[in-house]
């Protein structure tokens, strides 16, 4: 992201770009584990969506369809709270990624 000079900033310490934090990929923080979605076991209770602190549960056409790994930090709350007997979310090992330059 090119950093503005002082003359390019909006007057008054404001950010006019609502919600532009989405360019900050918190998925890069993940270390060692990530959730995996097992669709067949899912009862669409939306608890994973509810308890995900990083807005990383994908919801498409009214259905939970998995994860957005760009944001998933691997905290495991979703897997812990997934209520099904045969878990619809399991935490799996993941090779620690090398953070790509320029992605931030």
């Amino acid at each position: 992201m090119k950093k503005e000079t002082w003359t390019e900033l909006a007057i008054g310490a404001l950010n006019l770009q609502a919600g532009n934090s989405v360019s900050n990929l918190t998925g890069t923080w993940r270390s060692g584990r990530k959730p995996e979605f097992i669709e067949d076991n899912c009862i669409q209770c939306f608890f994973c969506w509810l308890y995900c602190p990083h807005f990383a549960v994908r919801v498409e056409e009214g259905k939970v369809t998995g994860f957005n790994y760009d944001y998933c930090t691997g905290c495991g709350l979703c897997a812990e709270e997934c209520p099904t007997k045969e878990k619809a979310i399991v935490m799996v090992k993941e090779e620690t990624k090398i953070i790509e330059e320029g992605k931030k």
């Binding site: 950093k3 503005e4 000079t5």
Partner: peptide, 15 residues
């Protein structure tokens, strides 16, 4: 709009 954000060393001076 977000009024009064936090700046780190990269923006405070410009603001």
């Amino acid at each position: 709009i977000t009024v009064g954000p936090i700046d780190f060393t990269d923006y405070y001076f410009e603001h």
